[in-house]
Design a protein around this nucleic acid. Structure first.
Lengths: 217, 217
DNA sequence: GTAAAATCTTGACCATGGTCAAGGTTTCGA
DNA sequence: TCGAAACCTTGACCATGGTCAAGATTTTAC
């Protein structure tokens, strides 16, 4: 069943600006019809460099519902491309899980602090259903950054975009009224309400499932 | 008068890790004893490049208490280096001001979305007292990025650090108990309580001045 | 297809932090 | 230095969202 609010938000014609997903911090904005298409068209890499980069993406990894892509404390640091499926990112704080982001098909997903700092992750990344991914190791990726200035420039721009996404997210979190927080997410990422159980969305929005439920009517 | 909590936090020996200021999103972590020292030692620029960059920093700008460095809607986009003084960054949301960051002497300050996107700022930057700054224009800065790969690499790393700072800030904001939010800030940036009136800190911590006051006893 | 698990909804109650007001204190600026 | 403005603190009251519980509904996995 789809609530009235969701229905309205979904139907609404969404501007190019709005479409820019604010969750891009963990999963960058750019949609990737295919990985190589992304590398060439989004990153604008010459075909030689694209080939070099593609060579380092590892064979698909499959997850079932509930499986973890990354666990807290785990040192595995990869940048993942989601071929299919949906994942959530959360950390635990006093027995509770606090959801901080989502990832879905045709986006990149990673534990940023872990990837950038080369440290064990504080975050869990968990599959919401059957999920297929490709990964590239941090080491390989940063080595390629050194080699290809154009790749480094693009990465810089991606990090800049991610930063801007975080700023928007901050405003979401600072918004006092639960109803408005819900509305902001509905405006920006209505599709999430189709992909993710509400209890996780509630956590992401800093409220209980009860409050979310009561304010979606 | 210094509260017990502040006193404790200030006295506590602060680890190198803790010292890393989490507000670095708007004002990057690196302390700048002098601007040229920063350019050479922090950015690791060769002297030639340092000289080139220094040439583009404009003559000091002075602000008095209450003056605005940047106003909402203003297109002036500079990266500023604070020689002396303290500033706050805030935006307005329904008649209220919401503080999102601070800047103090020997750090860089800017409205990131405005600077990166080359758009009018949504944020105000206001001096808390007499303040002296140096600025470099967005145009000049990005032109130099194109010219000097080492500068671009460093900028990329700064943006990465800023991103990590935002993630920490997110956890702060997601922390439910006001008391803990205060404690986290005290642990990380006790000096802020010396530099900034509590009412602004309260806003930054997503609570009223009354709640801050009641929880500092 | 079906049982089990997960999720959603609703109600009653309650704790917490916001609001308003007033008085005291500190800081600012001429 | 002194008057004014800004800021801080405290109390009383209240609105809001959290907690707990129970039943309904949906989804999952075999």
């Amino acid at each position: 069943m789809i609530s009235n609010l969701v229905e309205k938000a979904t139907k609404k014609r969404i501007s190019a600006d709005r479409t820019k997903d604010l969750l891009q911090f963990y999963n960058f904005t750019q949609k990737l019809p295919t990985l190589s298409h992304f590398l060439q068209n989004q990153l604008g890499l010459p075909s030689g460099e694209t080939a070099a980069l593609l060579r380092h993406w590892q064979k698909p990894r499959s997850l079932r519902r509930g499986d973890f892509l990354t666990r807290k404390g785990q040192v595995e640091q990869h940048l993942y491309y989601i071929l299919e499926g949906t994942v959530i990112i959360f950390y635990d704080i006093e027995e509770n899980e606090q959801v901080v982001g989502f990832g879905y098909a045709d986006t990149l997903i990673l534990s940023i602090p872990s990837f950038i700092r080369n440290r064990p992750s504080d975050y869990y990344i968990q599959a919401m259903g059957p999920t297929e991914l490709l990964g590239i190791s941090r080491t390989d990726f940063y080595r390629l950054l050194e080699q290809y200035p154009l790749l480094e420039r693009t990465w810089r721009q991606m990090v800049e975009e991610a930063l801007l996404g975080r700023i928007e997210r901050e405003i979401d979190l600072l918004t006092v009224s639960p109803r408005e927080r819900i509305q902001r997410l509905l405006n920006r990422s209505p599709h999430i309400f189709q992909l993710i159980p509400n209890k996780y969305i509630a956590s992401y929005l800093r409220m209980t499932p009860e409050t979310l439920s009561r304010n979606m009517r």
